[in-house]
């Protein structure tokens, strides 16, 4: 059957068997491989995408059912190539992942929560990600990431002068060393040679 799906703001067409899940269609027909197959029976959440802004299992939906909705995959979240959304950056800040396999689903579920609720409680975050199984992290740094992103988003339009404190568990604040650029660092090396591209 022919399907026309609106994915990350673009209408895309494919010829699929009715039995082909939205997950397989995203991955195989549209090469959007950020959604992952973990269990293919709706438990693990690695295949989560947003359908009209709400997180859903793309393994529990057939592509032929998916027309007429606005489908958002993890590929649709970053604002520009090389640029992360506030939430994605927060996951990097707290290291809210390890192997990365559950991460797209985890971020999309959290994204939907933050769209709905600007100041989620820990319990609300736990509930929002409870359908996404992570085997690496034990969830601690994921919850910190969502809390951190909420904090940043709330302060995004704060008036000038309001400080932006780091949140998260004590002791996780980046140390001054993080930004310690090395004065005689290797960037200079690029200018000292006999031509060649920079």
């Amino acid at each position: 059957m022919k399907v026309a799906l609106r994915i990350n703001g673009t209408l895309r067409e494919a010829e699929v068997e009715p039995r082909k899940t939205l997950l397989d269609t995203l991955r195989e027909n549209f090469h959007l491989t950020g959604a992952h197959a973990g269990c293919e029976h709706g438990v693990c959440g690695a295949c989560t995408v947003l359908v009209d802004g709400a997180p859903m299992r793309s393994c529990l939906m057939f592509a032929v059912q998916a027309d007429g909705y606005e489908i958002t995959t993890i590929e649709g979240l970053a604002p520009a190539p090389g640029e992360l959304s506030v939430l994605q950056d927060a996951f990097c800040e707290t290291h809210g992942l390890q192997c990365g396999f559950c991460t797209p689903g985890m971020i999309l579920s959290s994204h939907a929560l933050l769209e709905r609720e600007g100041s989620p409680s820990r319990q609300e975050i736990v509930e929002a990600i409870s359908g996404n199984i992570c085997r690496c992290t034990g969830y601690g740094q994921i919850i910190e990431a969502v809390e951190f992103a909420a904090e940043r988003l709330r302060k995004a339009n704060a008036p000038r002068g309001s400080a932006l404190p780091h949140v998260g568990a004590p002791g996780t604040e980046p140390s001054a060393q993080d930004d310690a650029a090395i004065e005689h660092g290797i960037l200079e090396a690029a200018t000292a040679h006999d031509g060649g591209p920079k």
Partner: peptide
């Protein structure tokens, strides 16, 4: 120590948070 034991970001994370990991199924 300058970098050892400091709370620097984990460089691998950037590719994973945008769904750009490169798994065998990809």
């Amino acid at each position: 120590f300058r970098f050892v034991s400091s709370n620097r970001r984990v460089r691998e994370d950037r590719r994973f948070v945008v769904g750009n990991g490169h798994y065998v199924a990809d």
